[in-house]
């Protein structure tokens, strides 16, 4: 079968709803109906039921404005939800925040540091704010995490003089200061070059290999796809889908796509061949190819007099499924 991808018509790849993560027994993050209505009346997060299993690398996906950062702020106790509840590392929140947060490394909506302090001094500052951190080991830990993100050479440089990517690395370093059971990373690859992006991925995998659960948000599936074991997809403040990434992959039926001026006729032919989901849209007819050999479909179309200008059989990419789930277009939904 042909695996050529055209990268078009993604929305037509209707994804099957993923099964909700069944058990919330051993989860690093659980939310039950988590809701945030801001004072202006805007509902940023609506009835969210997340289940992030321990040890998972959970990709929290969604386009701009879909409520990812607001969710993360609620999880970390920065923003009070207006409805629902949540658990972090098995502890009911917000009562357990003080107990749970030392085990959580967080990067929320980009780096934020003191511009007049050096990178190392900035990390020492945040480390000092953690009541469980040991001041005697602070310098060694700071040096180690700076080394880990490749910032050793810039440790003494003022944050003001850091480049965008260096700032992002410093923020990632801060999340690794202590022993963590959970990392919450909000768009960790923002501003990083391809090399930096790769390094972050490797770092996440390394941390995850040590047993740490990673919850990583992104608006780009491709950024996180390779490292995730689970995904949750946000759309307009709601969770459009959630589950192991293998389910998302498995649920995609290969499609035949015919480019032709006689789209309606082509769709009829495809339907006659017993293909399901045959439909015509503009100059294109689409159907699920199933077990039918593509060359037969093509021959039948030509036999029926359809002017075939293009013929592809492709399994929709995860990206296409993702776009199908999140909706298309550049407009930020409200």
């Amino acid at each position: 079968m042909n695996a050529t991808l055209t990268g078009e018509g993604a929305h037509e790849a209707a994804p099957p709803p993923l099964a909700p993560a069944a058990s919330t027994g051993d989860c690093a993050i659980v939310t039950r109906g988590l809701t945030k209505r801001f004072r202006g009346g805007q509902v940023a997060v609506d009835d969210l039921h997340l289940a992030v299993p321990r040890g998972a690398v959970y990709g929290f996906l969604g386009p701009n404005g879909s409520g990812k950062t607001t969710t993360i702020r609620m999880l970390l106790g920065l923003v009070a939800p207006t409805g629902g509840g949540w658990e972090l590392l098995g502890r009911p929140m917000p009562a357990g925040l003080a107990a749970a947060l030392p085990g959580v490394g967080a990067l929320v909506e980009g780096p934020a540091f003191y511009p007049y302090l050096s990178g190392a001094a900035n990390l020492l500052r945040y480390d000092a704010a953690d009541p469980t951190a040991d001041g005697r080991t602070a310098r060694a830990r700071v040096a180690a995490v700076l080394d880990r993100v490749g910032l050793s050479a810039a440790a003494g440089k003022r944050y003001r003089a850091y480049s965008l990517g260096m700032r992002q690395r410093l923020a990632i370093a801060a999340t690794l200061l202590g022993p963590r059971e959970l990392l919450v990373l909000d768009e960790p690859t923002n501003g990083l070059d391809p090399q930096g992006t790769r390094e972050v991925r490797a770092l996440v995998k390394q941390v995850a290999a040590g047993g740490t659960t990673v919850f990583v948000s992104s608006h780009l599936l491709a950024e996180v796809e390779q490292m995730c074991t689970h995904v949750g997809v946000m759309r307009g403040g709601r969770l459009a889908a959630q589950g192991p990434i293998a389910e998302l992959r498995a649920g995609r039926a290969p499609l035949v796509r015919v480019l032709t001026p006689d789209a309606a006729r082509a769709a009829a032919v495809l339907e006659r061949l017993g293909l399901s989901g045959a439909r015509a849209a503009g100059e294109e007819a689409v159907a699920e190819i199933g077990d039918l050999p593509p060359e037969r479909a093509c021959a039948e179309l030509v036999d029926a007099g359809v002017a075939v200008r293009g013929f592809t059989v492709a399994r929709p990419s995860l990206e296409e499924v993702f776009v199908g789930l999140t909706g298309e277009g550049f407009d930020v939904e409200n």
Binding site: P102, P131, D147, V149, G150, S152, P179, Q206, G210, T213
Partner: peptide, 19 residues
């Protein structure tokens, strides 16, 4: 990763006590 191995931020250690 850059910098190689380090004492890992794994979930292994006992929960740190507050001081």
């Amino acid at each position: 990763p850059p910098g190689g191995a380090m004492p890992d931020a794994g979930a292994s250690g006992a929960p740190a006590r507050a001081r």
